[in-house]
Structures are given as C-alpha cells and as structure tokens.
C-alpha cells in the first residue's frame, strides 16, 4: 500500500487481509497467487463480471484449466447463449469491449454498465 502504512501489529494484520483480497483477483487470471502451500487460497470473487463458469484448479489458479474464465465472459457477451450478468453485444452494448483488446490483459478496461 502506498497511502497507508501499517504501524502496529493489528494494522499489519488488516493490511495482510487487504493483500489477500488483492491476491484473489490475481488468482482469477494468472495462476496461483503467492501464498503458503499446501493449502490453496481459493478466490472468493464476485460473479458480476465473471459469469457462472469461472473456476479454479486445485492450486487456486486458472492457467491450467481447459477453458480460461475469460472465455465464459465472452461467450455470454457475444453469443448470449447463457442468461448471465453481462451486457449483450447484439442489441444494447456493441462497444462494451472496445477498449479490451486482450481479455486476459485488459479486462480491467471493461467497465460496469447501468442499464
């Protein structure tokens, strides 16, 4: 953290919780986050962006899965084969992924929409 500096022992623990939450986000895109083995830290992320279907492997990462989580997102968006919580490409949000050239790198550029 840049703007907050943990000073006492409790603050160190609070900061540790925050770092662990950030690690959840990383786990969704680039394999296992740095954490003690052998107990994997499974992400407890939301399904607002990553629609049903996102999963992790036994180490907490997504890299080894046959389909990346991002694939689900695009399937839902582009083809609407599943009634998921993503904007639809066909009628209402054709430009939703315009700033996102590569889903695994630029997914943060995909913003929420408010219909």
């Amino acid at each position: 953290m840049k703007h907050l500096r943990a000073v006492n022992r409790k603050a160190v623990r609070v900061a540790g919780e925050i770092d662990a939450a950030a690690a959840d986000v990383h786990a969704l895109q680039e394999g296992a986050p740095p954490q003690p083995k052998p107990v994997p830290h499974y992400p407890v992320g939301c399904t607002i962006v990553f629609s049903p279907g996102w999963e992790v492997d036994s180490s907490g990462g997504t890299a080894g899965l046959c389909q990346p989580a991002e694939r689900d997102l695009y399937d839902c968006y582009a083809t609407c084969f599943w009634p998921a919580q993503v904007p639809d490409h066909l009628n209402n949000y054709p430009d939703w992924t315009k700033k996102c050239a590569s889903a695994t790198k630029d997914w943060r550029e995909i913003d929420l929409v408010f219909p």
């Binding site: 907050l4 943990a6 000073v7 006492n8």
Partner: peptide, 8 residues
Amino acid sequence: AGGIFGIS
C-alpha cells in the same frame, strides 16, 4: 479494529 496506520 484497534489498528494504527500512518497516512500520506
């Protein structure tokens, strides 16, 4: 929480 943080 009882935490103490220095802030920017």
